Amino acid sequence: MQPQPPLLPAGPGTLLDAAAILNGTVDMRTYQRRYLVVYAETPRESARIANTAIPDYQGILSLVTTCVEWLDEHFGWELVNVFTRECQGDYLQWHCYYAMLRRSRSN
Protein backbone atom coordinates (compact mmCIF):
# COMPACT_ATOMS: atom_id res chain seq x y z
CA MET A 1 0.00 0.00 0.00
CA GLN A 2 1.30 3.42 -0.98
CA PRO A 3 1.17 6.22 1.57
CA GLN A 4 -1.25 9.06 0.86
CA PRO A 5 0.34 12.38 -0.12
CA PRO A 6 -0.08 15.10 2.47
CA LEU A 7 -3.10 17.36 2.13
CA LEU A 8 -2.48 20.75 0.63
CA PRO A 9 -3.88 23.68 2.56
CA ALA A 10 -6.86 25.35 0.92
CA GLY A 11 -5.94 28.74 -0.45
CA PRO A 12 -4.41 31.23 -0.25
CA GLY A 13 -6.77 32.35 -3.02
CA THR A 14 -10.52 32.03 -3.29
CA LEU A 15 -10.58 29.89 -6.47
CA LEU A 16 -10.31 26.12 -5.94
CA ASP A 17 -10.54 23.15 -8.30
CA ALA A 18 -13.66 21.02 -7.64
CA ALA A 19 -11.83 17.79 -8.47
CA ALA A 20 -9.04 18.60 -5.99
CA ILE A 21 -11.60 19.23 -3.27
CA LEU A 22 -13.53 16.02 -3.94
CA ASN A 23 -10.49 13.76 -4.22
CA GLY A 24 -9.14 15.07 -0.91
CA THR A 25 -6.08 16.86 -2.27
CA VAL A 26 -7.22 20.13 -0.67
CA ASP A 27 -7.88 20.33 3.06
CA MET A 28 -10.98 22.51 3.38
CA ARG A 29 -10.58 22.66 7.16
CA THR A 30 -7.79 25.19 6.60
CA TYR A 31 -9.84 27.55 4.41
CA GLN A 32 -10.37 30.74 6.44
CA ARG A 33 -12.25 33.04 4.07
CA ARG A 34 -16.00 33.62 4.02
CA TYR A 35 -16.41 33.31 0.22
CA LEU A 36 -15.23 30.61 -2.15
CA VAL A 37 -15.34 29.95 -5.88
CA VAL A 38 -15.13 26.33 -7.04
CA TYR A 39 -14.40 25.59 -10.70
CA ALA A 40 -14.14 22.75 -13.19
CA GLU A 41 -13.35 22.88 -16.87
CA THR A 42 -13.64 20.61 -19.86
CA PRO A 43 -10.26 19.04 -20.53
CA ARG A 44 -8.28 20.97 -23.10
CA GLU A 45 -7.66 17.73 -24.93
CA SER A 46 -11.42 17.59 -25.57
CA ALA A 47 -11.26 21.08 -26.99
CA ARG A 48 -8.30 20.11 -29.15
CA ILE A 49 -10.19 17.19 -30.73
CA ALA A 50 -13.60 18.87 -30.68
CA ASN A 51 -14.17 17.92 -34.30
CA THR A 52 -13.96 14.21 -33.45
CA ALA A 53 -15.17 14.04 -29.83
CA ILE A 54 -17.95 15.66 -27.85
CA PRO A 55 -16.73 17.14 -24.55
CA ASP A 56 -18.57 15.91 -21.46
CA TYR A 57 -20.23 19.16 -20.39
CA GLN A 58 -22.77 17.38 -18.19
CA GLY A 59 -19.99 15.52 -16.39
CA ILE A 60 -18.10 18.73 -15.68
CA LEU A 61 -21.23 20.49 -14.41
CA SER A 62 -22.02 17.41 -12.31
CA LEU A 63 -18.53 17.62 -10.81
CA VAL A 64 -19.17 21.22 -9.73
CA THR A 65 -22.62 20.51 -8.28
CA THR A 66 -21.37 17.41 -6.45
CA CYS A 67 -18.60 19.51 -4.93
CA VAL A 68 -21.12 22.18 -3.88
CA GLU A 69 -23.33 19.55 -2.22
CA TRP A 70 -20.35 18.00 -0.45
CA LEU A 71 -19.17 21.38 0.84
CA ASP A 72 -22.69 22.16 2.05
CA GLU A 73 -23.07 18.82 3.82
CA HIS A 74 -19.64 18.71 5.48
CA PHE A 75 -18.74 22.37 5.99
CA GLY A 76 -21.96 24.38 5.78
CA TRP A 77 -21.20 26.30 2.57
CA GLU A 78 -24.20 27.89 0.84
CA LEU A 79 -24.49 28.20 -2.94
CA VAL A 80 -24.73 31.78 -4.19
CA ASN A 81 -24.46 31.37 -7.97
CA VAL A 82 -23.36 29.04 -10.76
CA PHE A 83 -22.06 30.34 -14.07
CA THR A 84 -20.07 29.25 -17.09
CA ARG A 85 -17.79 30.93 -19.56
CA GLU A 86 -15.75 30.00 -22.57
CA CYS A 87 -12.02 29.96 -21.94
CA GLN A 88 -9.53 30.42 -24.75
CA GLY A 89 -5.86 29.80 -25.26
CA ASP A 90 -3.49 28.41 -27.88
CA TYR A 91 -6.21 28.60 -30.55
CA LEU A 92 -8.46 26.38 -28.41
CA GLN A 93 -11.79 27.01 -26.72
CA TRP A 94 -13.18 25.10 -23.77
CA HIS A 95 -15.83 25.67 -21.11
CA CYS A 96 -15.22 26.57 -17.48
CA TYR A 97 -17.94 26.14 -14.85
CA TYR A 98 -17.88 28.09 -11.59
CA ALA A 99 -19.89 27.93 -8.37
CA MET A 100 -19.75 30.82 -5.94
CA LEU A 101 -20.30 29.85 -2.30
CA ARG A 102 -20.64 31.65 1.01
CA ARG A 103 -19.82 30.21 4.42
CA SER A 104 -23.01 30.09 6.50
CA ARG A 105 -23.09 32.33 9.55
CA SER A 106 -23.51 29.36 11.89
CA ASN A 107 -20.07 27.93 10.95
Rank of each mutant, 00 (worst) to 15 (best):
E73D: 10
T65Q: 13
L7W: 01
P43S: 15
Y97K: 03
A19G: 02
S46Y: 07
W70F: 10
I21P: 00
W70C: 02
V37N: 02
G76Q: 11
F83P: 01
Q2V: 12
V64Q: 06
V80N: 02
I54Q: 00
A99R: 09
Q58R: 08
G76M: 07
R85H: 11
T65K: 10
N107M: 15
W77K: 01
S106K: 04
M28I: 10
Q88L: 11
L7H: 01
Q88H: 09
T65N: 07
V64I: 15
I60Q: 06
Q4Y: 04
L63D: 04
L92I: 09
M100R: 05
N23D: 15
D27H: 02
W77T: 01
E73N: 01
T65Y: 09
I49Q: 04
T30F: 05
V80G: 00
P12W: 05
R85M: 13
I60L: 10
C67F: 06
M1F: 08
L16V: 09
L36Y: 05
V64G: 01
G89F: 08
Q2G: 04
A53W: 04
I60H: 00
D17T: 03
M28R: 03
L22H: 03
Y39I: 08
C87E: 15
L36D: 06
N23V: 12
T65P: 02
P5A: 13
E69I: 12
I21Y: 00
Q4P: 02
C67H: 05
T42V: 14
P3V: 13
G59C: 06
Y39F: 15
R34K: 13
N23F: 07
R34D: 14
P6D: 08
T52W: 00
V64R: 03
A50C: 08
L101R: 03
S46P: 00
R103M: 15
S104L: 12
L61S: 05
V68L: 10
N107V: 15
T52K: 04
R33H: 14
A50I: 13
Q32R: 07
P43I: 14
L92M: 12
C96E: 15
D90I: 13
E69D: 13
V68Y: 05
G24Q: 07
A99F: 14
S62M: 14
E69P: 01
R33C: 11
Q4H: 06
T25G: 00
G59E: 09
I21F: 03
C96P: 04
E78Q: 07
T30H: 02
P6E: 08
P55S: 01
A99K: 11
N81A: 12
C67V: 11
E78Y: 03
P9E: 11
D90L: 15
Y97F: 15
L61E: 13
E69T: 12
R44M: 14
D56R: 04
R48S: 05
D17Y: 02
E86T: 14
P6T: 07
V68I: 14
V68C: 09
Q93N: 10
I21M: 04
L61T: 09
C96W: 08
T30K: 04
A10F: 05
Y35Q: 09
T30P: 05
W77N: 00
M100K: 08
A40I: 11
T14V: 12
S62F: 13
C67Y: 06
G13V: 12
P55M: 07
L92C: 05
T66Y: 06
L101G: 01
F83Y: 15
A47K: 00
G11S: 09
A20R: 03
T30G: 08
